[in-house]
Amino acid sequence: MSLSGEMIAFIMLSLVAIIGGILLINLTKVVHMVIALVFTFVSVAGLYVLLSAEFLAAVQILIYSGAITIIMLFGIMLTRHNDSNEKTAGLWRKLMLFAGIAGFGLAVYAGIYNLDIPVQETKLHEDNTRQIGMALYSDHIIPFELTSVLLLAALIGAIILAKKDDEEKEGEE
């Protein structure tokens, strides 16, 4: 069986994604963990390109590897972390968790490993962004508008949550 270019790209991207995830589990310094996850996010963006979702790939890089990673780094820098993430949960608890998650993984794997849906011709790769725009502003217009309310609520909520304490302290002093 000869490997097509798409298969090679898939294998490499998924390897990078999984290695990033495993580094997240195994590294000891919190900053390194977040940086390791950037690899995962970027390679997931590559997978989106393979699945003819170019617009989503751009969004993934902007939002995940750009915004979320940076905000998490801010969160780490602004809080005092005991640099290395020393003694985590007990070994017994880790083993139990690992067994439980492995069981979950195997159960789901049994359901999906031979899932065979006949591939159909799609036009997702032609003018992908245009198609998304058309669908977003016709079929999905109400959730799209609700998203703006959600973002506004999150913006105000985040500001108020992060700010409240200072004002209370000033009141006390």
């Binding site: 997240l24 589990i25 919190v30 963990m33 977040v34 996850l37 979320i68 998490m72 969160g75 780490i76 809080t79 972390h81 993430n85 985590t88 949960a89 608890r93 880790k94 968790l97 998650i101």
Partner: peptide
Amino acid sequence: LTKRNAVIVLI
């Protein structure tokens, strides 16, 4: 489920 740092849990 295993990490102690809340930022890592979020990510």
